[in-house]
Write a protein that binds this DNA or RNA. Structure first.
Lengths: 345, 345
DNA sequence: TATTATTCTGGGAGCGCTCTCACGGTTCAT
DNA sequence: ATGAACCGTGAGAGCGCTCCCAGAATAATA
């Protein structure tokens, strides 16, 4: 049906191709009369401009790429990434960009994907999720290729790259400080993988809060998770013999796993062990008990990243910008705040 | 850097543009000698063909669209869709297609997205998730526009459209039959939304199993959920007064919510009420208790859909095909099978 | 009224590729 | 030796759009 071209519309409206192009792109210098006539023909025929031709001629594809590296195969497990993707997709719609999704699932994929991402005439710019340090290669290559790029999360080396991040340090700090405030002293932490900046930052926030409060950190009370539910479960089993009163866990999903381990050991949350998580995934409020956690502005995060990228595309490469977004402590039951209130009240 | 064209490579290699094109596209009729020479130049210069130009000339974009309608804003809540997306993305990579993601988040979006999806020169074909009956419009429009399309899940009207679906009826049948086999008689069900074929099919399977076993269905034991955790929770609260012995729930996420309601009522799973869910999401195995459920071949499902779509694109529109995939009963603790075994053993 | 500025419109030259066709050079059967 | 068949190569004509530039038409100024 719609193999119509600009030329066809021009003919039917009795004007030139250039004029139709002006109407389609909403440019000035077209008389009201002509504009209406052209618009009518377009309406009647159901004409849509050909995207490839437009891209070729204008050197703009109106398409953004979202690259999620291999370490994010968690994609379908932790609701964080789908949620983020939604924010990004929404923002793309808003700005009339198309979103191309690149999920790297193995080392072989990575090459294919990079050559596709880097191909001229496909993407105007790229959002890259920063994951383990092994993923950083892509970022460097894109810098070299002069492809407009915004990194999601703080990359390992970030001096010449624009990124958006959440203030993980202060988030973790607040979570830990909250536990201290409630009177806990034997506070443990389940960290993220040591290779990720997110994991490291959250651990740093924990350490900072403990140090500032003058609480010594027992090394038996620090253990590493991998951001999965099962990872949280096993981490907690390792922690249990050291008898922590409270745990700051670097993600909600791991917290859910950790609580499962606590239950299995015949203990209860928060009476025997209190928890604060991170992320505020939808399940956090519905968990048993509801999770006290650090909320990230996930949707806003995605939106902001897209805005930065579009700015980069449309206004050229200026000095790299670093946007850090704030988190928020959400108090529910898992930290025992309510119980404490009752006692002190 | 790479604003090289075919012509540049041709010049450097001392051949014509056509020959370079043949080499790049791995076509025959190029002497080994020349091919090597051209390949060398490409290697050295880091040349990549321009995607838009290729698309314009060949009328093929090597890009597939994935459209998730508004009713799937669950996207970031139920792990099912991310998981499916992963399967699709993987298959796209495999076949060297790029995946464009279209998440409809409101009515306004829908128009924008449709006109983008339908635009010539952007997509070679589209995967559309079938959701509520309100979403069916897109499918019809794409048929009208002659856009190659594969529907994910069975659409309302499906005579002239290719789709992939899971055998929801037999899955639900097996789930229910399993509960009957374990000796339960007061069996309830939490269905999906009445507007979705998935929900309806699973309910049909439940009904069929009950009828075949000669068990009357108490209408107090049927209630509708919306595929969310909270929906399962509230549905279960409605069901509790009717005192069911067992419940077949149309999704794992709702099952998790339902179990939460049971616990809050001071009852235990599976001792007081047994459960079978549907989907086998990753959390199902880690839930407390681990969920007996119907596993869907999610990844395979996505892969199959992509294969069908590519076939449609490359070999033209033949009679629509309907692929139905099998499910599998995964027995864990929530159905009480283990307890029953102990009693009978 | 003559002159200059301003608005509208059409023509043309690409954007970087694919694909058909034609042509010289081999190789084969006749 | 002669014609047919075939392979490797290059030239040319698009694919459907944007965007610059040059006229024509109109409006504003002297």
């Amino acid at each position: 049906m719609s193999n119509l071209t600009l030329e066809d519309i021009a003919e039917q409206a009795g004007v030139s191709r250039s004029t139709v192009s002006r109407v389609v792109n909403d440019l000035p210098n077209v008389s009201e009369d002509v504009r209406r006539r052209v618009l009518d023909v377009i309406q009647q025929t159901g004409y849509h401009p050909n995207a490839a031709a437009r891209t070729l001629a204008s050197q703009r594809s109106w398409t953004l790429g979202l690259v999620l590296p291999q370490s994010v195969s968690l994609f379908f497990t932790d609701p964080y990434f789908p949620h983020l993707t939604k924010g990004i997709a929404q923002a793309c719609n808003e700005h009339n960009y198309t979103l191309a999704l690149f999920l790297v699932s193995n080392k072989e994929d990575e090459k294919k994907i990079f050559s596709r991402v880097n191909r001229k005439g496909l993407l105007d710019g790229v959002l890259v999720q920063s994951g383990h340090h092994g993923d950083q290669q892509m970022i460097g290559q894109l810098v070299d290729a002069n492809m407009p790029q915004v990194v999601l999360g703080r990359p390992q080396r970030y001096d010449n790259v624009t990124f958006v991040d959440v203030d993980n340090v202060s988030g973790a700090y607040n979570a830990t400080a909250h536990l201290v405030r409630l009177g806990y002293r034997r506070i443990a932490t389940i960290t993220g993988p040591g290779l990720s900046t997110v994991g490291l930052d959250r651990q740093a926030g924990f350490t900072k809060a403990m140090n500032e409060r003058g609480i010594k950190i027992d090394e038996m009370l620090e253990t590493e998770g991998d951001f999965t539910e099962a990872g949280g479960y096993y981490a907690m089993q390792r922690l249990l013999p050291a008898r922590p009163e409270a745990v700051f866990v670097a993600s909600d999903l791991m917290t859910i796993g950790a609580i499962r381990a606590v239950r299995e050991a015949g203990l209860s949350v928060p009476n025997d062990i209190a928890f604060v998580g991170f992320d505020d995934i939808p399940l956090a409020a519905a968990s048993d008990p509801p999770l006290t956690t650090i909320r990230q502005p996930v949707i806003q995060f995605g939106v902001r990243a897209v805005e930065l990228l579009i700015d980069l595309i449309e206004n050229g490469i200026h000095p790299p910008r670093h946007v850090i977004m704030d988190t928020q402590l959400i108090i529910r039951d898992s930290c025992g705040a309510i119980r404490k209130d009752l006692i002190s009240g």
